[in-house]
């Protein structure tokens, strides 16, 4: 038992030391950025990402550094990654919108399902973890009420109505959390990085050219075939693009 406690303490200390090291690298990256040395700033920020750690601020800074160094595709990619971790951050939203305007190909989005559009808007500004804890709060409250009623037989006036209300809130929070998880992790989206990114009608360059993609254009990944992704564009047109021309958000 003592050994286990010691191990846990040791792991915690190592993690804290590692985070402290990452903070130093991060500050070096910020310094490079402030000096206008965007390439070295990218190297520093990427070092943290390669160590397996992510944060909204890290991705946001990477987006900024790529934007300033002229790589629009990666700038949009990192702003999208930052948005996943910090959907309510106005700086991220502003810079994403700003950078997206520079893409040479713009799409008019076609929203086919109004319910999905409404749900996306509702959960859009919340993090998955925030929704997860909200769900947890309702779920535990529901269980505590059940423990009171069925386990401890402690009653108060209107306990049934309260239980039903909390249950409804739990179901609603569970639905929103599941939807947010789908949007953030199950719906695969990617950003075009390459300046020359042809979108074909089939998974081969011998097929018809559907569209000439441009850096910063966001596509939804539907399926894979060999070296190609089947992608759905914002205007609901489909096509095939080489995998190495895009990066998944």
């Amino acid at each position: 038992m003592t050994n286990r406690i010691l191990t846990v303490l040791l792991v915690t200390l190592i993690c804290a030391a590692a985070t402290s090291g990452q903070e130093d690298i991060f500050q070096t990256g910020v310094k490079y950025y402030q000096e206008g040395n965007f390439d070295d700033a990218i190297k520093m920020f990427s070092k943290i990402e390669k160590s397996g750690i992510e944060s909204a601020a890290l991705y946001y800074n990477l987006g900024n550094a790529y934007f300033k160094s002229g790589d629009l595709g990666r700038a949009v990619l990192y702003y999208h990654r930052a948005k996943r971790l910090g959907p309510g951050d106005v700086d991220i939203l502003n810079n994403l919108e700003f950078a997206s305007q520079f893409s040479k190909v713009q799409m008019v989005g076609v929203q086919l399902n109004p319910i999905e559009a409404f749900l996306k808007k509702t959960v859009g500004s919340y993090r998955l973890s925030a929704l997860g804890w909200l769900l947890s709060l309702f779920f535990i409250s529901f269980l505590i009420l059940l423990i009171m009623k069925f386990g401890l037989q402690l009653y108060f006036t209107g306990i049934d109505a309260v239980i039903i209300s909390v249950l409804c809130l739990t179901i609603l929070a569970a639905g929103l959390t599941a939807f947010k998880y789908r949007v953030d992790f199950l719906d695969r989206r990617a950003v075009i990085l390459a300046p020359d990114a042809p979108v074909y009608s089939g998974p081969s360059s011998n097929t018809q050219l559907e569209l000439q993609g441009a850096p910063g254009l966001v596509v939804e990944l539907l399926q894979e075939s060999g070296d190609y992704y089947n992608v759905l564009l914002e205007n609901k047109r489909r096509g095939w693009i080489k995998k190495d021309l895009v990066a998944e958000i």
Binding site: V30, G52, I53, S55, A57, L58, N64, D91, N95, F98
Partner: peptide, 22 residues
């Protein structure tokens, strides 16, 4: 929106890449 907003000077809350709370 006349330019991108300035970078952040605090690394903020970090987590292992791809970690999902639930």
């Amino acid at each position: 929106a006349r330019d991108i907003r300035y970078i952040k000077t605090d690394l903020g809350d970090t987590q292992p890449i791809g970690q999902v709370l639930i």
